[in-house]
Computed example of a mutant assay.
Amino acid sequence: MLNVLAVLVLLGSGTVAGVLFAVAVSTVPALAAMPPDRYVYTHTLLGRNWDPTMPLIVLGTTLLDIVLAVWAPGALDRTLIICATVCLAGVSLVSHLRNVPINKRVHRTDPDAVPPGWEDPRPVWRRWHLLRTALAMVALAANSVALTLIF
């Protein structure tokens, strides 16, 4: 059972880190280069399929990490897995408390009628996204090292 958990945790944390990294290095710069109307339109299209897929992967991997921490044979393994769990919980919190509210605000904006003086959310959204990307990368590294030590 430990082997199955290990595979699922690495698959989940790797997917989260990979998706967030890809968004950070490709999607965010592309969106930043767009005029506001194209940004609003494109952001709305890109955001359609993230929910519930990514929250399920993040929260599911967090739960699997909790189970793995209980079953970890050594103190260092357990500590690293707990670190990964906290980082994945941080990804979820940043997403739900910071990025999602910004997304909802953008989705309420009509791309054909972006008001003058519109407050561009891209710089703030980017900072929060980079934080959750860093948390996801630390989670993947902690899980990888812990599972390398276990096996």
Rank of each mutant, 00 (worst) to 15 (best):
A141L: 14
V23P: 00
N143A: 14
L64M: 11
A84K: 03
W125T: 02
L31P: 05
N49T: 11
A141M: 05
T85E: 03
I81P: 03
I102W: 00
V138Q: 04
A72P: 05
G60T: 05
A24G: 15
P29F: 05
A89Y: 07
V25S: 12
A69Q: 03
G18A: 12
P29M: 08
W118P: 11
I57W: 02
L2F: 09
I81T: 11
T53K: 12
L76M: 13
L140H: 04
A134Q: 14
H107P: 02
P36L: 13
L76Y: 12
A22H: 13
R98N: 08
M137R: 02
P121V: 01
R38T: 09
V67H: 10
L8H: 07
G14D: 11
C87P: 05
G14H: 07
V28N: 00
I81A: 09
S144G: 13
D65W: 00
L93S: 11
L11F: 15
R48N: 07
R127Q: 04
P36N: 14
K104N: 14
A33K: 09
L80H: 04
D37L: 04
G14C: 11
A22I: 09
L68C: 02
L147V: 08
D37G: 11
V106I: 11
A6R: 11
A24L: 13
H129L: 00
R38C: 08
L68A: 06
V7M: 14
A6P: 06
A22S: 15
M137L: 14
H96V: 13
G47I: 01
D112S: 15
A32S: 09
A141F: 04
